[in-house]
Every structure is written in structure tokens, then in C-alpha cells.
Simulated assay, not measured.
Amino acid sequence: KIRPYVRKFHSSEYLSALATGEICLVVGWSGDIMQARSRAAEARNGITVGYAIPKEGAQMFFDNLAIPADARNVEDAYELINFLYRPDIAARNSNFLSYANGNLASQKLLDPKILNDKNIYPDEATLAKLFVITARDPATQRIINRLWTKVKTGR
């Protein structure tokens, strides 16, 4: 029933569209929403972007770094990973992207606005309501795919 009121389902266009006021509501990743907020503020376009984690909870995700088994430059890959995990670099990335990082040593280098933002670094009560998606058996995944297609198409 809600489909006529949904402009689009898209996983990457919402950042700019939210910042410009083209759309007014998204379900998205915290860092993307924070970046949209910054873009709107920089543009001084009268758009104010807010963000909230639902009181019921939400999905949590983690970015990962991996080296393919057949990589040609394994040592270089380790160098990059070691560089990104340096506290100063992890803090700079978090400060720029508004995404939390798992490097505790970087916290003393974080902008207090980032570190103290409970939407970026949730408190324990909020963390208890967050969940991660796990792999599902093929039959369950087919049902999820069909339901999601029905939501997106209205059929």
C-alpha cells in the first residue's frame, strides 16, 4: 500500500538527493546520512538533515579488508591494511566520513563531535538493539528476494 508514496529504491543515490532536498526520507547507513547532512550545511540550501536509530533497533554492518588468495602484491596489501589501521589514519577517516572505526587507540584523535555522537558511536543500550545479517539457507533467501521484489514493484 505504501508503494505509490515511494519515489525510488536505490542504494547509492540517496546521499546527494537527501542533501539537495530531492527526497525527504531514507533508510540508509549512518555515515551516508552524516555526509548528506554536511553537504546540505555546506550548500546553505535550507535543507536540514537529521538521523536517528529506530528505538526498536536496526541492522549494523562492518566494512572489512580482505586480500584475495591469488593476489599478486600481498605485501603491498598488508602495507595498505596496516596504514589504514594506524590510529591517526583511522581517526582521519572517521572524522571525514562520519563512520565509526574499531580502533580504540584512534578515539583520542577523533573529533569530539564524532566520538560523542550516539548515532555514530551508539551507547550500550542502543548497541543491544542492533543486529547483523547472517547468511541464510537458499530457500529462505529466495523468500526474502521475492518479498523484497514485491515491495519494490508493488506486485
Results as ranks from 00 to 15, higher is better:
Asn145Tyr: 15
Ala135Lys: 11
Lys118Trp: 06
Gln35Val: 15
Asn101Met: 05
Glu124Pro: 02
Ile33Cys: 07
Leu84Pro: 00
Gln59Ser: 14
Tyr5Gln: 12
Ala91Trp: 02
Lys150Trp: 13
Asn64Ile: 11
Arg39Lys: 12
Arg136Gln: 11
Glu75Pro: 01
Gln59Asn: 09
Ser16Cys: 12
Tyr14Pro: 05
Ile120Arg: 06
Ala139Pro: 00
Asn103Phe: 07
Glu79His: 11
Tyr85Leu: 15
Ile81Arg: 13
Arg92Asp: 09
Leu15Gly: 01
Ile47Gly: 11
Arg3Lys: 15
Leu65Tyr: 15
Glu13Thr: 12
Ala77Phe: 03
Ile47Ala: 07
Asn93His: 09
Arg37Tyr: 07
Lys152Ser: 13
Ala43Asn: 00
Ile144Arg: 06
Tyr14Phe: 14
Leu109Glu: 07
Ile2Phe: 13
Phe61Ile: 07
Arg155Asp: 11
Gly57Cys: 10
Asn101Ala: 04
Glu13Ser: 13
Glu79Ala: 10
Val74Cys: 03
Ile144Gly: 02
Asp63Asn: 03
Glu13Asp: 10
Asp111Met: 05
Ala77His: 02
Ala43Phe: 03
Ala100Lys: 02
Lys129Thr: 04
Lys108Glu: 12
Ile114Gln: 07
Ala41Asn: 03
Thr20Asp: 13
Leu115Arg: 11
Lys55Pro: 00
His10Cys: 12
Gly46Thr: 04
Arg39Pro: 00
Gln59His: 12
Leu130Cys: 04
Val26Asn: 02
Leu18Cys: 09
Arg39Ala: 14
Arg37Thr: 09
Arg3Thr: 15
Met34Pro: 01
Lys55Ile: 01
Ala58Gly: 10
Ile67Val: 13
Leu84His: 07
Val6Lys: 07
Leu110Val: 01
Gly57Leu: 05
Asn103Val: 14
Ala128Leu: 08
Lys118Cys: 07
Ala52Phe: 13
Arg92Ile: 00
Tyr51Leu: 12
Ala125Val: 08
